[in-house]
Amino acid sequence: MAITEKLSQEFELGFTYTRSTGPVVGRFLTGLRDSRVLGIRGSDGRVLVPPPEYDPATAAALSDWVEVGQEGTVVSWCWVSEPRASHPLQQPFAWVMVRLDGADVPMIHCLQASSAEAVSTGGRVRVAWVAEPRGHITDIRCFVPVPGGAS
């Protein structure tokens, strides 16, 4: 007898306990709640956004905070023509690596754009916030192109 039926069950993925995000991740997320983007300076002087707790090269604890700009430059991008149900935007969008002004390392988030033709490496984008930030990376609703920004 061929066994073809697959069993399935609802499952919610998540922490089943409360945990602190700590002094570095927590401060960054609290910054987002206040519509500010905070970075941290690494041992080599580079400003890292989002901030790691420990230096990637020396493993030293980091604490030299730097607020960075909310506009930045696209370092790389890709075009999602068919968003997954889990993706943050449900219309076709771009994932972008953005180096925010004042930061030395890019961060990855989504970019709302009309089409792939509207996105380019070197293009200028800015943060668009959600209406009610709550201290979460998704407080940044997405990036949006800066009107007239070089691209």
């Binding site: 790389s76 943050p88 994932w95 490496t121 990376i137 998704t138």
Partner: peptide, 19 residues
Amino acid sequence: YYLAPLWLDTVSLAALQAR
């Protein structure tokens, strides 16, 4: 905290690298 909540999938990450 920074990437998993975005559901940034492996194909998208590789596409950023390819670009």
